[in-house]
Design a protein around this nucleic acid. Sequence first.
DNA 1: ACTACGTCCTGCGAGC
DNA 2: TGCTCGCAGGACGTAG
Length: 263
Amino acid sequence: MPELPEVESIRRQLVPWLTGLQIISSWSHPSEKFSPALETIGMTIESVNRRGKYLLLELDDEREMVIHLGMTGQLTRTESLSDPYLRAWWELDNRSILGFRDVRRFGRIRVVTGKDYEGTLAHLGPEPLSSDFTPEKFYADMRKSSRKVKTQLLSQKPVAGVGNIYADEACFRAGVYPGLRRVTRKQAERLHLEIKAVLELALQNGGTTLRDYVNAEGAQGRNQEFLLCYGRSDEPCYICGDILKRTVIDGRGTTYCRGCQKR
DNA sequence: ACTACGTCCTGCGAGC
DNA sequence: TGCTCGCAGGACGTAG
């Protein structure tokens, strides 16, 4: 599932490729999740940005194409248009083609005007790798809700761009049980630090590929080799040796260490 | 207003 | 061997 490091890895490859190119033709799957792709024909891509897990392609007339990759979404340079899981493509004026492949169709494409992000990224919390993300604000935001720590992280409100993998990783490294309903200042500070650390590490490693993730050139990430917790249930904790346990928190599979992450 | 849960979607793996 | 069935999950919609 593409989270911030995966989306940012893609963005960095899209910038030198797409910037300044005009979209000369386009196709999409009939679902309204993808059909806004067709509205971009004739427009020029002025820049490629990111907010949380959303990619933003700045177009003409204050318009932007907002893309969310969902769980299995891939944005790549594409040659074969016969792939049954291709949900949209855009032909650029240098004859290259940007393809959006998404097996499970949880991804979404929107075209917005004048930064009207209602329904997409309007209510996202701070960017975790920017100076807006401070331990003080994070602590205050986490105390605003009585939902479980992990649920709050996945809500994108206290911080943007964290998904299931990095939520488990950050909680593990911070020694915080993801089912806690309130955190202390110290726990919040530690979580703040580890959220940044796991995202930066994953970015350095080109993202995590468990099954579907590939970057814009079709290459897999390497960060799966560095995960300490996610996907390691029934295996020993690298810190204390306890067997990592799997549970479900608000419908999301969660791995944690009973020894290191006390309730 | 806030929290919890259902929904979308399809491949995969467990189990019979 | 081949089938069925339940699981996985981000973000939104709905119910309480």
